[in-house]
Design a protein around this nucleic acid. Structure first.
Length: 572
RNA sequence: CGGGGCGUAGCGCAGCCCGGUUAGCGCGCCUGCCUUGGGAGCAGGAAGUCGGUGGUUCAAAUCCACUCGCCCCGACCA
């Protein structure tokens, strides 16, 4: 491609609405443009990059026996009603009606459609196992799209589904996917970790996420450097470090704490630490009200609570609390609290002199012995792991890091096959539900993750396997150097190198800046200065390496270099 | 959904408080000359429903009301 003919709208100013690094540079380098909140045009450079990502995905999915198909984005509500997700998806599902008034959904994922195909077509154990996948646009009406391509409402996803006779088969399909994903992300040049995750709305028994450590990520991971334990904090466990917190109040008494509500305020007011405090959170489950106690320096983990008490559990509103107990939420406490059940996180188990709300506005109790003063039904793990908690496996202090999710694999089990009645006949003539797995990769997120991960203040720096072009010829002194540039350009094209030639009539600085911004990994600078000595200059975007090449050697040298870099799956 | 911020030329912004000339600046764009190893220079030029609607006023980018859009923080943590 000649740059002069290409549509690469780079911009010099930092776009006002962009803050995340990937968002800023993908806009500046002309890869994407926003259409509306959470919806983007993918411009030619961006699409080239995404096509390469999709091609890698295809190759690796095919390698594990996956068969590509294409399912509709426009789906009937009937199927979603069968699984219950017409309700469960809530506002995240884009809904519309057709001209007859029939409910439709723009599919956020395709478990139901797969189960529908399977129940209509899969009859016998001989038809199994199957792995079906598609690369297709998904729609999710996210409450808050953000960070450019990182959280969007319309996005391209590779989603695959495994259908197996039994759970042993599912384990096999799952491991195949895990291996394929590892290869895919390796080839894309990303640094990532695999973590235990929560299966959330998907259901099922086990799930793992592929995560890129990045401040732009919206997930939080707990990581153990020593034994390799890593988990999303939605599910991560941790041991509480043992430390002696000297008791502040050894006598149980009621103290006046006018208007002092939050953990920080109470700690400061009473001269204690958050570790002396116990927070009392009230939750509504169906029509029961339960309390959960947790130490003041921890947060309650909603995902864990939902797993224990069911997805309908919700925090009681301050108004509900006020109405039922006549007390503001800041002064709730577990002593003589009239709720159906009281549960407590392990973090409060040993507290003998705790500070708690007095269930009376403007008063707290101090010196409370949690075990003997409170009627606790059960201790459990209800907290979000925090930095410094100890690894559940080896006891090493855990690190907590932000990360962004690029892939997620689930063992679904029978949820959808049972709900939609996708059954097959086994060897013994018995009907059995198909065992399902589902596996997703965000294509745009891979591109955005690479943009977050690699580059510098001047712009992007693509891993060569997902770069929109592999080589850029930067011709400085057009038209005098044009002939040399063109011969290298044609030579590289003939040896199947993906090359763009910046043949524009512009100043050198201008072209260098654009080149840095767009981040093509290999650059050949063709200038008067070098050409008169029979040379051109090779530059590597990632590390800034420069090297002179003889003109006549340049094509074979660069062809070779590109081949090598691709194989080494050289990153950025 | 709660809180905050922002909508003025293609992009980035000033002007708004304190209403009053033809609404400015930088970049970009077009024409010509010139220049070519890190976003060059000179000259000329085009380009604006001041997000929208309604109101106040002799007069509105500016004041008021409503509304739409975009970004950021948070989403019940007591």
């Amino acid at each position: 491609m000649k740059w002069s003919k290409a549509f690469i709208p780079t911009i010099k100013e930092v776009p006002r609405d962009a803050e995340a690094r990937s968002h800023i540079f993908l806009l500046k380098a002309g890869f994407i443009r926003q259409h509306q909140s959470g919806v983007y045009n993918i411009l030619p450079l961006g699409w080239r990059s995404m096509l390469k990502i999709m091609q890698i995905i295809r190759e690796e999915m095919n390698a594990i026996g996956g068969q590509e198909l294409l399912m509709p984005a426009l789906t009937s509500a009937d199927l979603w009603r069968e699984s219950g997700r017409w309700v469960d998806f809530g506002n995240e599902m884009f809904r519309l009606k057709d001209r007859k008034g029939k409910d439709q959904a723009l599919a956020p994922t395709h478990e139901e459609i797969i189960a529908d195909i399977a129940r209509n077509e899969i009859r016998s154990y001989r038809d199994l196992p199957q792995i079906w996948y598609q690369i297709q646009t998904k729609f999710r009406d996210e409450p808050r799209p953000r960070f450019g391509l990182l959280r969007v409402r319309e996005f391209i996803m590779k989603d695959s589904y495994s259908l197996d006779r039994d759970f042993e088969g599912l384990d096999v399909s799952y491991e195949l996917h895990k291996k394929a994903y590892t290869k895919i992300f390796d080839r894309c040049g990303l640094k990532y970790t695999v973590v235990q995750a929560s299966s959330g709305l998907m259901g099922g028994s086990q799930s793992e996420e592929f995560m890129v450590i990045s401040d732009a990520g919206e997930d939080t991971l707990a990581i153990c450097d020593k034994c390799g334990y890593s988990a999303n904090t939605e599910v991560a466990e941790g041991k509480i470090p043992e430390e002696s917190v000297p008791p502040a109040h050894t006598k149980r008494e009621k103290v006046h704490t006018p208007g002092i509500k939050t953990v920080e305020e109470v700690s400061r007011f009473l001269g204690v630490t958050p570790k002396h405090l116990v927070k009392t959170l009230l939750f509504v489950v169906d029509d029961r009200m339960i309390a959960i106690l947790i130490r003041g320096d921890y947060e309650v983990n909603e995902a864990k609570i939902m797993r224990k008490f069911g997805p309908s559990i919700r925090l009681a509103t301050p108004d509900e609390v006020k109405e039922r107990f006549g007390v503001s939420v800041g002064f709730l406490g577990p002593v003589k609290l009239d709720v159906d059940e009281i549960y407590a996180d392990f973090s409060v188990k040993t507290l003998k002199y705790a500070v708690v709300g007095a269930n009376e506005d403007d008063y707290h109790l101090v010196g409370v012995d949690i075990q003997s003063d409170v009627n606790i039904k059960e201790f459990g793990d209800f907290r979000i792991v925090k930095e410094g908690d100890l690894c559940p496996r080896c006891g090493n202090p855990l690190k907590v890091r932000s990360a962004l999710e690029i892939g997620h694999i689930f063992k679904l089990g029978l949820k959808y096959s049972e709900a939609l009645h996708a059954y097959y006949m086994d060897k013994d003539g018995k009907e059995r539900p198909i065992v399902m797995g589902s596996y997703g990769i965000g294509v745009g997120r891979i591109m955005a993750a690479a943009a977050e991960l690699y580059g510098d203040d001047n712009g992007l720096s693509w891993p060569i396997n997902i770069a929109p072009y592999e080589v850029e010829i930067l011709e400085l002194n057009s038209p005098r150097t044009g002939e040399i540039a063109e011969s290298i350009y044609k030579g590289l094209q003939e040896s199947k190198v993906d090359v763009i030639w910046d043949d524009r009539e512009a100043s050198p600085g201008f072209k260098f800046k654009d080149a840095d911004l767009v981040g093509i990994p290999v650059r050949i600078v063709v200038s008067d200065r070098k050409v008169k000595n029979g040379m051109v200059e090779l530059q590597i975007r990632r590390d800034g390496t420069r090297k002179d090449l003889k003109i006549e050697d340049s094509i074979s040298y660069v062809t070779d270099l590109v081949r090598r870099m691709k194989k080494e799956n050289a990153t950025g």
